[in-house]
């Protein structure tokens, strides 16, 4: 029901607005709902707002788990 796409915060400007890079394009995004966001973080962008910062560690864990699934044959 809700498209949201990961993007990288490249510059935080005034009034909780940031430039966010999504696959090489840059759009202004409101950080009001994710005020802890720092430059360099990935955020999930929906309808012009960041609705969450992406948890890099959780993402790495997911990918690691998958990698293992790919390499290790399950019995």
């Amino acid at each position: 029901m809700c498209l949201a796409i990961p993007g990288k915060v490249i510059k935080i400007k005034e009034n909780d607005i940031a430039d966010v890079e999504i696959g090489g394009i840059v759009r202004e995004v409101g950080l009001h709902l994710a005020p802890e966001t720092k430059e360099g973080d990935y955020v999930l962008v929906h309808a012009g707002y960041a609705i969450q910062t992406i948890d890099e560690e959780a993402a790495r864990e997911t990918l690691k788990l998958w990698e293992e699934l790919g390499i290790v044959e399950t019995p």
């Binding site: 498209l3 796409i5 993007g7 999504i22 696959g23 090489g24 394009i25 759009r27 962008v45």
Partner: peptide, 13 residues
Amino acid sequence: IKEEILGACEMLG
């Protein structure tokens, strides 16, 4: 498809 195109398309649906 260029990455920028994919990015814009994902963003705008």
